[in-house]
Simulated assay, not measured.
Amino acid sequence: MAQITVYMTGGIAVYKAVQVIRNLEKKGHIVRVVMTKNAENFVTSNTLAALTKYPVLDDLWSKENEANIPHVHLARWTDLAVVVPATANFIAKMAMGIADDAASTTILATAAPKLVIPAMNDQMWENPATQRNIAFLKENGVNVMEPATGMLAEGYVAKGRMPEPDEITTWVETFLNERNVLQGKTLVVTAGGTEEAIDPVRFIGNRSSGKMGIAIAKAAAKLGANVKLIYGNVTVTLPQDKNIELIHVESSEDMLQAVKKQFARSDILIMAAAVADWRMKKVADHKLKKQADQTSLQLTLVKTKDILREVAHNKKDNQKVIGFAAETNDLLQNAKKKLQSKGADMIVANDVSKNVFGNDEDQVIILKQKGKIEKWPRMSKNQIALRLLKEIFEF
């Protein structure tokens, strides 16, 4: 049983959302409703209040709300937020963080998982602005159900129709059943690039954005896992999730110590970070200034410690270690060598010579100590993250 807040926005399909609420209640969930004023042009708040046996939140400034903060109370109460139907306007508000009415303000204050079911005209759905907003919501952990192709209110068949209530109910139930599949598991995930100091100003780094590691951490947290995200230099927004502990490091040595400490009491290590292979033999204690007659600079570098190898060879029988192989040539051959030499349970190999760093998509090959080599199709890093976790835990 879950405490579900349903957000009903102003599209003609809102009348079908009433059945979604009835279905959820029949499944044993407690449902409360937030409505936009436009939604009330199609379905009255009295109808929803009668169904849920609870007042509908549609106005932050009504007399009964003067002495409390209803949107914050409801946001904290919510286990799951379901927006059905989601208009292009409300999707845009969610993406931009706009809070100008009861519905947009409440969902902005909600930390619970969010499911969005769009319904609109096909031209509005295909508009680049809508697609940009949808992509942004997905990137930030919001689950979006694809609209159906069918008869629209305008009288022709196209994509944009809200799926049927039973389909939506099944989708919500599937999410609820899967969201705690990793409950009780602790994962250590590394992300981003390390920084090896040259002097107090400069460092040796790489082009890793941290997107893949962060996507894995977010996916694991959504599935109920306790995540320790050890990150170096990243160029994307860090997740804000109660299930994710953020641990910042700079050098490869810092990352090694953090990984060893956290993995000692964890189930899985996923090494998605791009760890430097070399560091300065001696870091200068002052800025190395360029001299007027200087035409070159020689740096003496030494190997960094191999985090993946060291941790994998010392793991317990009930622990798993997954490494990444980022290669620019001989991908499969190098990945096989890494799997054999490092002692990892699995290697995720990808070709980084073709616009991978900072990109939202990737194409990877999975190699295991036991099992066949699998070449996955090109997909978003979020999709790779979820599929990888399913591969590891087989749920």
Rank of each mutant, 00 (worst) to 15 (best):
Q131G: 08
A153L: 07
P55Q: 13
Y156S: 00
Y156K: 03
T130F: 00
W77V: 07
M124K: 05
W77Q: 05
V144N: 02
T170C: 00
M162D: 06
L187D: 01
R161L: 04
A109H: 09
G97I: 08
A119I: 01
E164I: 04
N121M: 11
R132N: 14
A148S: 14
S104W: 02
G155F: 04
K93E: 01
E173Q: 05
D100I: 12
A86G: 03
H71S: 02
M151F: 10
T110H: 06
M151T: 10
T47P: 06
F90H: 02
W125D: 05
A102E: 08
M145T: 08
A158L: 04
Y54R: 15
P70H: 06
N121F: 09
A86F: 05
N133F: 01
L137K: 12
T174K: 00
N68V: 13
A102D: 08
G141T: 10
M151A: 07
K53C: 11
R76V: 02
A75E: 03
Q183M: 12
V82T: 00
E64Y: 06
D122P: 02
V144L: 13
N133Y: 02
V56Y: 03
P85R: 08
F90C: 06
T174I: 04
D166F: 12
N133A: 11
M94V: 00
F175N: 09
E178A: 02
D100H: 12
N133P: 06
L176W: 03
L60Q: 10
L48T: 03
V83S: 01
V72W: 11
W125K: 03
A50F: 11
Q183E: 14
W77I: 04
D79N: 13
V157Y: 06
Y156I: 00
E64L: 12
P70K: 09
N143V: 15
K63S: 14
V72H: 09
N65P: 00
L182E: 02
K159T: 09
T110W: 02
Q131Y: 05
L74N: 07
I107D: 07
G160V: 06
G150R: 11
I98D: 07
N140E: 14
N177D: 13
D100W: 13
I107P: 01
T169A: 01
V72I: 15
A99N: 01
S62I: 15
A88K: 01
T106F: 14
P118I: 01
V83Q: 03
N177H: 13
D58W: 14
I107M: 10
L60N: 04
D122I: 12
I134S: 05
G141Q: 10
A86Q: 03
